[in-house]
């Protein structure tokens, strides 16, 4: 069963966080076509968030064709979103883990790593535009 988490003060709306986590779970194969997503009530009781927020996230996923709501039964995963296959994900994840070990050994803390990743992503985007 998929467990959703919530980062507060992330400046990312809650429903967007849910959409991203479900999409990521589908990409990584944690959630497979046919699997049932947690019910709105389960998510709300677990995270103490607004039910309409969960509905909004599930509707967005439905609009993207990734899940399907079946009347009175629940919401089910429909297909994997376009993206790198799980093997690629796994390989990239492993090399990132090795990099994180190196960064920690060099004295970076989590905040330092995050800000380095963010600034690298930003400058990489700039290069792509330029």
């Amino acid at each position: 069963m998929l467990t959703l988490q919530l980062a507060t003060h992330a400046n990312v709306p809650t429903y967007v966080q849910i959409v991203q986590q479900v999409r990521q779970a589908l990409l990584a194969g944690v959630l497979r076509p046919g699997d049932r997503l947690p019910t709105v009530k389960d998510v709300v009781a677990e995270l103490a968030i607004n039910p309409n927020t969960v509905l909004k996230a599930y509707r967005e996923l439905e609009r993207e064709g990734l899940v399907e709501a079946r009347q009175g039964v629940g919401t089910f995963a429909l297909r994997r979103p376009d993206g790198p296959p799980p093997a690629t994900q796994l390989a990239l994840g492993r090399s990132l883990a090795r990099w994180v070990v190196k960064a920690r050994a060099a004295g970076f803390d989590d905040a330092g790593i995050e800000s380095l990743v963010r600034s690298t992503l930003l400058s990489a985007t700039d290069e792509a535009i330029a």
Partner: peptide
Amino acid sequence: LATLGAAVA
């Protein structure tokens, strides 16, 4: 708040 939210759901 979880009880309240679940009731609304």
